[in-house]
Amino acid sequence: MKRLLNIELIKIYSNSGFWVPAIFWAVLYAASLLIVTQINVNFTGIDSTSFFKFPTLWNVTTWIASWFNLLLSIIIIIVTGIEFSHKTFRQHIIDGLTRIELLKAKIFLILVFAFVAFVIVLFCTLIIGLIYNDSNSWLNIIDNIELIFVFFIQSVAYMLFALMITLLIKNIALSILTFILYFISFEPIVRNFFPDNILYFFPMKVISNLTPPPDILQFATQANFQTTINGQVVNDSNATQPFEISLLDNTVAAMIYIAIFIFISAYIIKRKKL
């Protein structure tokens, strides 16, 4: 593992294709947090500073970080696509790596990127926590802390999906285009043809639902909606409840997708002409 990771780190050391989007990710994330903390919402019953108090703060920082997972995925597409455009994967095979080692190296790199993103999100969360939390709210720091670990899984899943697409397409621009089109249009359109109990298990849906938006008044949580029929509120317990999956189930589904992405990537790399 150490050898493969060292090789990957040498490759990205002088690669502007890595540093530019990576710095962009960090700056955009920090700037977004800065902007969000400056927004002062004054609705009755809503105190915007409560967004930045534990345990809601975990929800806010991981949700905002999830907006920028696209950039992490683009980094993976760039560093993998370069291997095809310069035929360096092929050279590594000649020099003695196996095809599975090529894949392992990229997976280790994804884990490192996800870990660095995890550390940055954790650091930013604690900094904001220091500014906006009093001694009482610090007691809630453990609540919802699982969200940052779930964010790690989410980053890994997005990047593995990007890796799989790049191994399949081999071209950087086409891979980025395919990733974005699948994410923002193809899957959402296809999902519309399926009922809730199926659409919630589409890959991008599962992965994006890992970091739900903050819900300080709890009116956006589906479980708290009451089903309305013909405009009337129905409290009948037999009324259809909207489909919902727990964070744990969602995480398990995401882990299954991670395994599927790795399996497909291994299949592709074993058979693809490098």
């Binding site: 040498i10 490759k11 002088s14 690669n15 502007s16 370069i82 310069h86 035929k87 360096t88």
Partner: peptide, 8 residues
């Protein structure tokens, strides 16, 4: 052809 990273 030689296959190397041009940025390294």
């Amino acid at each position: 052809t030689p296959n190397f990273y041009p940025f390294l």
